[in-house]
Amino acid sequence: MRLIYAFIAGGLFGAGLFISGMTDTAKVQGWLDVFGDWDPTLAFVMGGAIIPMAIAWAFVPGRKPLVGGDFPTPPEPKIGRDLVLGSVLFGFGWGLAGLCPGPSIASLSYGGPGHWVFVAAMLAGMYLAPMLRLRLDRALPAE
């Protein structure tokens, strides 16, 4: 069942990314481009996505997931070097190509070779990240 639920969740996510236009890099860059011809779509997508998710979080206390186990505990509310630096790097890449991880997968079937190149580079970056973090820890300790 766990796999079926995961497939359904992924399917809803992929379908939503497609329907909302978030796999269109022009719409994402258009939203980030406050000095150009601003496109408000992304704000509606974010707002729309947060509603069912907030309802889901309200169900969590005192309950267990359907397949068993436990719900994830909230992470320590720590705002550190990795969170800020990582988000800045990610945001820069996001603005550059207009793609983030979810839409890059959802658009693989129709986006053309550019999307495959993007995903390959993204996976390479994910592979390199732990090594870069070790180097950074040596050069610039987090705390």
Binding site: I19, G47, G48, I51, P72
Partner: peptide
């Protein structure tokens, strides 16, 4: 476009809700 965005957003959030409530994952 904003209507499609809102509908798509609701689907995205529903996917997240299923993954959380069914599988207990973010």
């Amino acid at each position: 476009d904003w209507i499609w965005g809102l509908i798509g957003g609701l689907l995205i959030g529903s996917g997240g809700a299923v993954y959380l409530l069914a599988n207990g994952r973010i």
